[in-house]
Design a protein around this nucleic acid. Structure first.
Lengths: 112, 112
DNA sequence: CGAGGTGCATCAGTGCCATAATACAGCCAT
DNA sequence: ATGGCTGTATTATGGCACTGATGCACCTCG
């Protein structure tokens, strides 16, 4: 969202979206830190920092020396957590902002 | 929104909302940097940095040594600008995120 | 003129972020 | 066992944004 958002958080969001969308299915191995770093033009440690988030939440399983794998149910758990957080903290603010600007979500629902 | 959002931007948003809502009517003087700083527990320079944004956009008129005043039409111009920016950059991202999370704006429209 | 209110400029301190260079630890195919 | 792939730890460095303290320039009012 914010263009000034730290790289490791942007990567984290991007990977989370990929997991939810099934780009990285359950049981699949995530790209190695070095591979993703090269592909994204980032530093391997920055990628590792992004991956760290998912380890803490138990969404990926680390096999040291092999790779990191998406655990079973990760997509559902991730979607549920993101949805809860979105509805709880972001949506109320968005709604109040839209109200202030004279906008109604229902009017914008069909097309952008 | 983001708790890590810089103070000067949070103040800026808060002031913009106040102008749109008519808390600071056109022609009225904004609180002095020192007064608002004391009230918000911030540094006067941080408040000045927030005010700076509105000066650049010509929404307030600075009378050095006197104070800063809301210009005529500032509320409308501000609302129009914020609405345009919201629809152009934020709303598309919000919609795609909600789609990924399986949410529909129309369902959340009536109550929060 | 002086006092007290304005905004503004300058300088310095602090912390986070990103990068880099190495080195280490574990696994696997050959 | 060896080479090559994984993730991880350590340390150092540069950059940048945010915040803060101080002092100055300007205006109004008595």
């Amino acid at each position: 969202m914010n263009p000034n958002r730290p790289v490791y958080l942007k990567l984290r969001d991007q990977i989370a979206a990929a997991i939810i969308d099934g780009v990285y299915p359950e049981g699949a191995m995530l790209p190695s830190v070095r591979a993703l770093a090269a592909e994204q033009g980032a530093n391997p440690l920055t990628v590792a920092k992004a991956y760290q988030q998912f380890q803490n939440d138990g969404l990926v399983e680390v096999q040291r020396g092999v790779g990191m794998y998406v655990v079973r149910g990760a997509a559902d758990r991730l979607r549920a957590a993101e949805r809860e957080a979105f509805l709880r903290v972001e949506w109320p603010e968005i709604r109040s902002r839209m109200a202030r600007l004279g906008l109604d979500p229902a009017d914008l629902a069909p097309a952008s």
